[in-house]
Amino acid sequence: MTLSPQEWQALWLSAKVAACATLLCLPPGIALSWLMARREFAGKALIDTLIQLPMVLPPVVPGYLLLLLFGTQGPIGGWLQQHFGIVLAFNWKGAVLASAVVAFPLMVQPVRLAFRMIDTRLERAANTLGAGRLDTFLSITLPLALPGIVAGAVLCFSRSLGEFGATMSFVGNIPGETRTLPLAIYSFTHVPDGEAAATRLVLLSIALALGALLASHAIARRAERRLGYHDPRGDTARARSR
């Protein structure tokens, strides 16, 4: 299966947008997941609802809201352009933002669960060994949450690869700039003799999604093995202790 330059362009742009959206989601995703898993505070239910909202809204809605806020005439977009010369609407950086907004809830869910599953007594043990709060978070909590963080990052990446509605509303369908794989597939289905190219890109999308999920599975297994969850020698040792 050989790809045309246009198809390669869509593939490369999708990978770039999805990778950047995942990186953009990671810091706030980890911070918010920890907050939601470990702290009780007023308004928690509201924040939880807002985090999940993009998942249940039609994707065009967050896309249109992004256009209103981050468009060159919007309050945030206008300010960014005026002070930093940053323009998000109708370019690939805007596609990153659209993908990040829609994929964010998918990152938060597994990371939050991973933080909740960690035995807090391990963190207290670290405290009694001279590790302060940040040190404990970096040396104990974060490594123990790694399988969940990997799962969240892969889900976020995969969702970003498939992002269509919000991207179309916010940054349009510009070849080489914002035309990611789903938009390219959509465009090919609307031109004469585009079925073959659309089919190739559909197959490629399936392969990419499968590859990402398999990679996530392998990384999570490796991380879990490091944590001793899948260790055949562990069973032997436990049997010996009995």
Binding site: G228, Y229, D231, R233, G234, A237, R238, R240, S241
Partner: peptide, 8 residues
Amino acid sequence: RRPAQLSG
């Protein structure tokens, strides 16, 4: 060894 590989 890892802790999971130890006896009690």
